[in-house]
Design a binder for these strands. Structure first.
Lengths: 198, 198
DNA sequence: GTTTATAATTGACCATGGTCAATTTACCTT
DNA sequence: AAGGTAAATTGACCATGGTCAATTATAAAC
């Protein structure tokens, strides 16, 4: 199957859609995004949006993916954590971003595990990158002896991912009448998961 | 606020709704459940369904909750596992039930963490019971020395929950082109999470 | 410049979940 | 039995995401 390069017009339309969607999302939040609003404000028909994005979640995934990538940049810039606590600190901005809106979490979870399948997907790429980043941290931390050494850094990285999702799920379920923020709740799990045998 | 006991009629209506919904779900699967179908086959108006259940997920939660409770009964009957592997075996039926349909996972996840808030909710009750069961297993296993003793059994139980959700999320994301079943994937995580320091 | 093939867009239409003012039914009081 | 009151039910209506045959714009071929 041969695919032709997209025309200018299409790229412009896509850019405009994303611009409008971003605008709506930043002023009203992710949950408030309505397909109707996006197409109306973009000045385009509804069908057009769905020819650019598989579904509403596909659009959201692009928006959210961009944010996640930004956070990953920040995290990467901070360098390898010196302690398990510091992992939590590095993660805090990402966690509180996801914690602001349930739909962010939902979209991330839906696309989370597709390791390598179609890497063009922003979310997938983000997850791969995140796991890779975690693994590189952990590998170095293992060498310094502040993280357990009896299993691979990849396994440990995936575990962090699991705990991340766990505390986020709790965060949304308890309707925030909970005292712990996601990153506070994460801390003890990481300690038990990562600390070397005594 | 005083609440009067529900009348016979209401109980019958609810029972009929659940009966029909169960029928649809067992023949066509959870994803195929349509509110329209349920009310039509029950011979009742749409509004009635929503006066009995908060929303479609609320209805699903009752159906799914019943199944989960059944699985918990089975698990409880099997007694305390003798090894970490055996935990996976005990969990396998529950895991493969959840693995059959994404909506089961979604509903469970949405209601998962509401620890104690309104225990009338079936799902919440199921989760509380599950965590309690895990914790009791782990506590005994800790005493025999086959599970790490450097943290509470409740913490370990919650961790199992996190890994359960993790492998299930992976299972649905990879569209099953994955070789590992959820319970196969779970095994290594439990080993690393639970095994005592060497 | 005309023709032609394919990319891009359109918008009427559909599917499905959910709401709520109005109506009917059941129960209690006198 | 009549009347009153709250529970239970109704169904027309709405909100929102998504589809697809038909139409229009673009670029390549001649």
């Amino acid at each position: 199957m041969k695919t032709r390069a997209p025309q200018q017009r299409r790229l412009q339309t896509r850019a405009k859609l994303l611009e409008v969607a971003t605008q709506i999302v930043t002023t009203q939040g992710y949950s408030a995004l309505r397909v109707e609003d996006v197409v109306e404000q973009t000045g385009v028909a509804k069908g057009t949006l769905f020819s650019h994005f598989k579904d509403k979640d596909g659009l959201l995934a692009v928006l959210i993916g961009a944010q996640v990538m930004g956070h990953l940049d920040q995290m990467e810039a901070k360098g390898v954590p010196h302690s398990i606590d510091e992992i939590t600190h590095h993660l805090e901005p990402l966690l509180s971003f996801i914690g602001t809106d349930r739909v962010i979490f939902d979209v991330l979870l839906r696309y989370s595990g597709s390791t390598g399948a179609q890497v063009d997907e922003v979310i997938t790429a983000g997850f791969v990158r995140q796991i890779t980043l975690f693994a590189s941290w952990l590998s170095e931390m293992q060498q310094v002896g502040i993280v357990r050494n009896d299993t691979s850094s990849e396994m440990l990285a995936e575990g962090i991912q699991a705990f991340l999702n766990h505390v986020l799920a709790l965060w949304f379920c308890t309707e925030h009448d909970n005292i712990d923020t996601p990153s506070t709740a994460l801390e003890p799990f990481l300690q038990v998961w990562l600390r070397p045998a005594v």
